[in-house]
Amino acid sequence: MGWLAAIIVGGLAGWLAEKVMGSDMGLLMNIILGIVGAIVLSLLLQLTGLGAGAGASFSFAYLITGFVGACLLIFIFRLVRR
Protein backbone atom coordinates (compact mmCIF):
# COMPACT_ATOMS: atom_id res chain seq x y z
CA MET A 1 0.00 0.00 0.00
CA GLY A 2 1.32 3.46 -0.81
CA TRP A 3 2.36 5.79 1.98
CA LEU A 4 -0.47 8.26 1.40
CA ALA A 5 -3.09 5.51 1.28
CA ALA A 6 -1.62 3.92 4.43
CA ILE A 7 -1.84 7.26 6.27
CA ILE A 8 -5.43 7.85 5.17
CA VAL A 9 -6.62 4.31 5.90
CA GLY A 10 -4.60 4.21 9.14
CA GLY A 11 -6.15 7.48 10.25
CA LEU A 12 -9.62 6.18 9.46
CA ALA A 13 -8.99 2.88 11.25
CA GLY A 14 -7.52 4.70 14.26
CA TRP A 15 -10.44 7.12 14.36
CA LEU A 16 -12.96 4.26 14.25
CA ALA A 17 -11.06 2.45 17.03
CA GLU A 18 -10.99 5.65 19.08
CA LYS A 19 -14.77 6.02 18.80
CA VAL A 20 -15.49 2.36 19.60
CA MET A 21 -13.04 2.22 22.52
CA GLY A 22 -14.14 5.61 23.92
CA SER A 23 -10.68 7.18 23.99
CA ASP A 24 -9.47 10.62 22.94
CA MET A 25 -6.08 10.26 21.28
CA GLY A 26 -5.95 12.96 18.59
CA LEU A 27 -5.39 12.84 14.82
CA LEU A 28 -1.69 11.94 14.81
CA MET A 29 -2.15 9.17 17.35
CA ASN A 30 -5.13 7.83 15.37
CA ILE A 31 -2.95 7.56 12.26
CA ILE A 32 -0.15 5.89 14.22
CA LEU A 33 -2.52 3.46 15.96
CA GLY A 34 -4.21 2.53 12.69
CA ILE A 35 -0.98 1.90 10.80
CA VAL A 36 0.86 0.15 13.65
CA GLY A 37 -2.25 -1.81 14.54
CA ALA A 38 -2.59 -3.05 10.96
CA ILE A 39 1.08 -4.02 10.82
CA VAL A 40 1.07 -5.83 14.16
CA LEU A 41 -2.18 -7.69 13.56
CA SER A 42 -1.15 -8.59 9.99
CA LEU A 43 2.08 -10.09 11.29
CA LEU A 44 0.23 -12.04 13.99
CA LEU A 45 -2.28 -13.35 11.45
CA GLN A 46 0.49 -14.37 9.06
CA LEU A 47 2.31 -16.21 11.86
CA THR A 48 -0.84 -18.19 12.58
CA GLY A 49 -1.43 -18.87 8.89
CA LEU A 50 -4.65 -16.84 8.78
CA GLY A 51 -3.33 -13.71 7.08
CA ALA A 52 -2.79 -12.96 3.44
CA GLY A 53 0.08 -11.00 1.92
CA ALA A 54 -0.09 -7.22 1.85
CA GLY A 55 -1.67 -5.75 -1.25
CA ALA A 56 -0.35 -2.79 -3.24
CA SER A 57 -3.58 -0.79 -3.05
CA PHE A 58 -6.35 0.02 -0.61
CA SER A 59 -8.36 -2.92 0.56
CA PHE A 60 -11.23 -3.30 2.96
CA ALA A 61 -9.23 -6.01 4.72
CA TYR A 62 -6.47 -3.47 5.53
CA LEU A 63 -9.07 -1.15 7.07
CA ILE A 64 -10.55 -3.94 9.19
CA THR A 65 -7.10 -5.18 10.22
CA GLY A 66 -6.04 -1.64 11.15
CA PHE A 67 -9.24 -1.10 13.12
CA VAL A 68 -8.95 -4.35 15.10
CA GLY A 69 -5.22 -3.84 15.62
CA ALA A 70 -5.75 -0.27 16.84
CA CYS A 71 -8.47 -1.46 19.25
CA LEU A 72 -6.06 -4.06 20.61
CA LEU A 73 -3.32 -1.45 21.02
CA ILE A 74 -5.69 0.89 22.89
CA PHE A 75 -6.73 -2.01 25.13
CA ILE A 76 -3.11 -2.97 25.87
CA PHE A 77 -2.18 0.68 26.46
CA ARG A 78 -4.98 0.95 29.03
CA LEU A 79 -3.83 -2.24 30.78
CA VAL A 80 -0.24 -0.99 31.02
CA ARG A 81 -1.24 2.50 32.14
CA ARG A 82 -3.29 1.20 35.10
Rank of each mutant, 00 (worst) to 15 (best):
A6F: 00
G14L: 03
G49M: 05
A56K: 13
Q46W: 11
L16K: 06
A17T: 11
I64R: 01
A5D: 08
A6N: 14
L4Q: 04
S59D: 10
L72K: 03
A38C: 08
M25K: 02
R81I: 10
E18K: 04
L16F: 13
L28D: 04
V20N: 03
M25A: 01
M1P: 15
A52D: 12
M1I: 12
L4T: 08
N30P: 00
T65H: 06
R82C: 00
L41N: 02
I35L: 10
I7P: 07
L72I: 14
A13Y: 15
I35M: 14
I74Y: 04
V36S: 10
L16D: 00
L28Q: 01
I8V: 15
I31T: 08
W15K: 12
V40P: 04
L27G: 01
Y62E: 11
S42M: 08
M29H: 05
M29K: 09
C71Q: 05
R82A: 03
G11N: 07
L43A: 05
G22A: 11
F77W: 14
L33H: 11
G66R: 07
R82P: 00
A52N: 11
W3Q: 06
G53P: 04
I76T: 11
M1E: 10
G34F: 07
G51F: 03
W15C: 13
C71L: 12
G55H: 09
A56T: 12
M29A: 12
I76F: 14
G22V: 00
R82H: 00
G11E: 03
D24Y: 08
D24E: 13
L43N: 03
L73S: 07
V68H: 01
A5T: 14
A6Q: 12
L33S: 12
